[in-house]
Structures are given as structure tokens and as C-alpha cells.
Simulated scan of single mutants.
Amino acid sequence: MRTLLLHSSSAGDGGPSRDGLLEIFRQAGCEPFSCAVNGTDFSDALCRPADLVVAVGGDGTVTRVLTHLPDRSIPVAIVPQGTANNIADALGIAGDPAEIAAALGNMVPRPFDIGFAKGPWGHHRFIEAVGLGLLARAMAEVDEAGVSGEEQIRTSRETFRRKVAGGGSEHLEAIVDGRPLEGDFLLFEVMNIGQTGPDLTLAPDADPGDGFLDVVHIPADRRAEMLEWLDGGPDAAMPPLDVIRAREVEIVWAGKSLRLGDNFSPAPGAVGRVSIGVEPEQVRILVPPRTGQGGGSHER
């Protein structure tokens, strides 16, 4: 089985080296070849004949692989090697490279949506979410400071809480599947998976293979409830939010912080519109059998 291993250029930091990864997948019966996701030959590697693509890394690596895959009929396996690993967690994927490689024969393909956002910057594909409001601002601030790893998760949460406590909000006008939604919001996330950003589970019933997005929003008048949730720690109940299932979302964007997956878009200098949806062609991700049987049930 011709297997393309796509990893970060820092492969070996806290995990197997590039050569170590190749050997692990050889021992699992694969014929592996590899490429760094930020290498100059990344696009060429994706076009080489392969029976399986393996994304080794965190959410940034997985997102780059899934959104650039030219042939979406080729199954993709994920080896989580990042800090938050939101995408792998959403699919029930866990294990080190040797464990994932050994389990390939038992995994099943699960359809997985690719989201898109069109705006003043052009067309952008995403896997996790498009975010506006105080969480997006907090994450942009931490990203600009160059914080990474576990410290990034902790600092992002603390910065988000500080902004919520500070009385801020963002006024947004949106159209969700043809229905208007307007107000002052603490948080507004259009999500493809249940987790986003600093390992926050905001849409636990999200099914990333059903062609729908979860529009998660928290109005500013629920600030006290939100602060109570943020102070509750990892065992706290679900946050005080509302979720709308939708295929298409359009937002009037006033040029404030906008998060596109792990990227942050600069203000265009004028009010623009952001159109968000799901591409018709899905990718196929290999998951453990139980996780691959069906998905969450949702009212539509």
C-alpha cells in the first residue's frame, strides 16, 4: 500500500523522527514515502500516486493536509502529535504512530466535510471553525504574542475570560439558512467539529460528516453565566450558548478579529460580507470502527 506520510518540519520533537515514521509504517506493511507539510515539494507530493495519506501532527498539519488534498477519494489517517488535537479528538482518534499504524487494517473510512469561507481576502477552506467575537480576539492576541504549546491553550482561555469580564461584545448581523440573526454577542463560532481553539467543546453534538455546520452563539446578556462557566474548570456543564444547525451562513463583518481555523484575517478597512458553507465533496478519514458507525443525531 503506497502511503504518503505528511508531517511538520519539526518531526522528531516529542515523537519519532522522519526516518522513524517511515520505519514504523514499513513494519505495518505499507510502502511509505514522506514530505513536510510546509516543504516546497508539498504540492508535488500530494499529486504522487498513493493508496493512503497519513497526516502526522497537530490541528494545523491535519488542516493543511485535508484542505489541499487534490483527490478526496484517497483515505486519510491521522496521527495526533499536537497540543489540542481538536480534529483527532472529534473523531475518537488517539494513539502514538506505532499504535495508529498497527490499527490501520481495522479502521473504517468516515465521510468528513470541508468548510469554506469567502470574504474580502478570497476563498479559504477550514476544518474546525470560523470565529468572531471575544474568543477570536483573544486567540488573535495570543497568536500575535507567539505563545505556543500548552501555554497557548492556558493563555487563550485566560485572555478570553478577561475580555468577557471586561464588558466587551461584538455586534453582528447574520443570515443563517435564510433566517436573520442579529445582536450583541460574546462569542460567535460557525463550527464544523465540536471543539475549537483552546480545546473548548462548544458543539458536542456536531457531526462533521452530515453537510451541516453548527452556529454557536452567546448573547452579551448572558455574560454572568459565561463567566461562571469559564470559572468552573474542565468538569463544568455545557456553556450558556445557543446552537443552530445550518448549511449556509452569511455575516456582515465590520473588520474586527476573524479566525479562519488557525489563521487570522486582517481588517479590510471597510465592512465586508463573509459567506460560510460546506463544500459538496467530502474527504474520507480512517477512524476506529465504533467511532465510524454513524454520527450524532440532530434536529434540522
Rank of each mutant, 00 (worst) to 15 (best):
L5N: 04
L5Y: 13
D13V: 11
G14E: 13
G20N: 05
G20K: 05
G20W: 01
L22P: 01
L22W: 01
Q27W: 00
C30R: 06
F33G: 02
C35G: 13
C35P: 03
A36G: 07
V37T: 15
V37R: 12
N38G: 15
N38V: 03
S43L: 14
D44Y: 03
V54S: 03
V54A: 05
V56M: 03
G57Q: 02
D59W: 06
G60C: 10
G60T: 06
T63D: 00
R64A: 09
D71W: 13
D71H: 14
D71C: 14
R72Q: 13
I74H: 05
I78T: 08
V79T: 09
V79N: 07
A84F: 08
N86T: 03
I93T: 09
A94D: 14
F112A: 08
F112N: 00
D113W: 09
F116C: 06
K118F: 02
K118P: 00
P120S: 09
G122N: 11
G122C: 14
H123Y: 15
F126I: 13
F126R: 09
I127F: 07
E128G: 06
A129W: 04
V130T: 14
L132P: 03
G133V: 07
A136V: 05
R137K: 08
R137I: 00
M139E: 09
M139Q: 10
A145Q: 15
A145G: 08
A145M: 15
G146V: 03
S148T: 01
E151V: 08
F160V: 02
G166L: 07
G167Y: 14
H171S: 15
H171F: 15
L172C: 05
E173T: 09
A174K: 00
I175Y: 04
L181I: 07
E182D: 11
V190P: 01
V190W: 04
M191R: 05
N192Q: 11
I193Q: 10
Q195G: 01
L200F: 09
A203M: 03
P208G: 01
F212I: 01
R223V: 09
E225P: 02
L227T: 10
E228P: 00
E228N: 11
G233L: 08
M238R: 14
P239V: 12
P240N: 13
I244M: 11
I244C: 11
R247G: 11
V252L: 14
R259D: 01
G261I: 02
N263Q: 15
S265V: 09
P266F: 03
V271C: 03
V271G: 05
G272K: 04
R273Q: 12
V278H: 02
V283Y: 07
R284H: 05
L286H: 04
Q293L: 12
G296M: 12
